[in-house]
Amino acid sequence: MASNLIRKLVLSSVLFFTTAASAETFVFTAIPDEDQTKLVERFSGVADYLSEQLNVDVRYIPVKSYAAAITAFRNNQVQLAWFGGLSGVQARRLVPGSEAIAQGVEDEAFETYFIANTNSGIKPADKLADLKDQLQGKTFTFGSKGSTSGRLMPEFYLRDTFGKKPEDFFSRVGFSGNHTRTLRLVEAGTYDVGALNFQVWNKELGDGSIDTDSVQVIWKTPAYPDYQWTIRGDVNERFGEGFKQRVTDALLNLKDPALLESFPRSGFIPASDDDYEPIRKTAEEIGILD
């Protein structure tokens, strides 16, 4: 009886590992910058599209943090990822041979919006410096710790303009987790001020799901490069010669309006690592990158 039991256990563990390792599936992920349901909806659409175009099984896996997306990419558990500016720079540093292949049309000149709850009495301005007195001592939330538009760029401009660490300038600094959450927290008054991805703001505004009596944009950052598709360098060895180019072409030819709308992007255009040099410098400057 005991030997039988051991045999079953061994058998089960073998089965368990082989099922996990056998399928040669092209897996991709994305930074969780928005609500889960939206991400799953958006990227399962992309998975279907890519699968059709590339003739391989394509699977999207959702992750819970920016770092988890980078780690999965680095560990070769995913071969393609929709990164933000900063996470893309981090990922490409860690994976030699990987490169940025496509970005959204809007990502060439991306912006961060600073938003404020109307009860805080903060009035919009063209220059961040003009808001010094109004912002000082208020509560403030970033998005995710690893976000470009939700953390890196706003933190850079705050430090640059006020010469202080955000936690020394505001009375309380938080990390909401993602852009949708930042919007909701500021709208509800949990924080007086927040910083988010302008595309998320515009999309939510267009959908009519922002209470404009409670929250308004008070400042817009200058433009910087942001989101991009980054692919590992070794995909050709694994999925066949020219695979990288086929993925790139498939992304650049993505024209399905509903799918593009879900990003929201008007289309994808070629991108290269060099486009993100400003992001790398900024990250080094504020000490996020070594």
Binding site: S65, I70, T71, Q90, L94, S144, K145, G146, I288, D290
Partner: peptide
């Protein structure tokens, strides 16, 4: 968590 988010 911050260290992990920054891949350190």
């Amino acid at each position: 968590d911050s260290a992990i988010q920054n891949i350190r």
